[in-house]
Amino acid sequence: MRAFDFVSAESADQAVSLLSEHGPNVIVLAGGTDILVDLKHAKHDPDVVVDITRADDLKGIEVNDEGLRMGALVTHTEIMDDPYIQENFPALVHAAHTIGAVQTRNLGTLGGNLVTCVPSMDSGPALMALEAEVTVAGPDGTRRMDLEEFFVGPRKTVLEHNEVLLDVIIPKRNLGKPTDFLKFGLRKGQALALVNAASALWVGEGNTFKDVKISLGAVAPTVIRAPAAEDFLEGREITPENMAEAGRLAVEDAKPIDDFRASASYRRDLIAVLTKRTLDNAYRLAQND
């Protein structure tokens, strides 16, 4: 690692002022599972690293008037261990569980996963399918936006150098919404996603799809929604054929690339399969409720 200064923030406000003070060549350090790797590979050469792991106001999981609030510093392990999330959002537990291994899940944070913004992030799809919103704090106060607006491109979000992600909120209307997440990686442990997918749905009258939201990871510059597939399903009867057709349509919503991990063509096959399977699993969850 190259030399840098190190400073700790005790709160989100303090983090913002430290970032403003030392910017723009500063880096925010939370779980560090990505940042430290980048620092060691000299991908960043910051003057100052601002550690926010002591900012208690960025922690905690709670259900409030707005919905389910998860602080940006909530670790993947905390998500897996939270009784409310276990009960209501098994997809979030599963998504957290597929990240790295125990050690990295104990360090890595939800906010860090979203801010790092790699297309293959595992936290994104289930949250996006649940229409999650995020709160961003900067020198001029806070702003709220949909998760989709937060992502700009590979490794790029709307965050300015002096802003931090405060929290992630799943809106009240979606609490308990049947959701499933599936990830396909090159091995079972410590895998990066070739493709991941999440589907959230309610079952409408006459066993029809209602408010279906489908999200895909690792198949476009950022985590995306699959509107063609969603539109197709809305109001249709829940059948295996319709789920399979939604899978095919989801492929059209995606722009997978060829890389050394997999070909675009194989990724398209996976999108269809994973979309279909998450819809099916989410429907099963709905039936069990």
């Binding site: 291994a101 091995r187 079972k188 442990g189 410590q190 050394f260 991990r261």
Partner: peptide
């Protein structure tokens, strides 16, 4: 089923690390 060292067109390794060189973990 997993391991392979990969090279780019200029003979440089693409995956010289344990993130992208896939070897069995306990779960595999």
């Amino acid at each position: 089923i997993q391991e392979e060292m990969l090279f780019d067109d200029e003979g440089r390794q693409i995956n010289p690390n344990l993130t992208n060189y896939i070897m069995p973990t306990s779960l595999d």
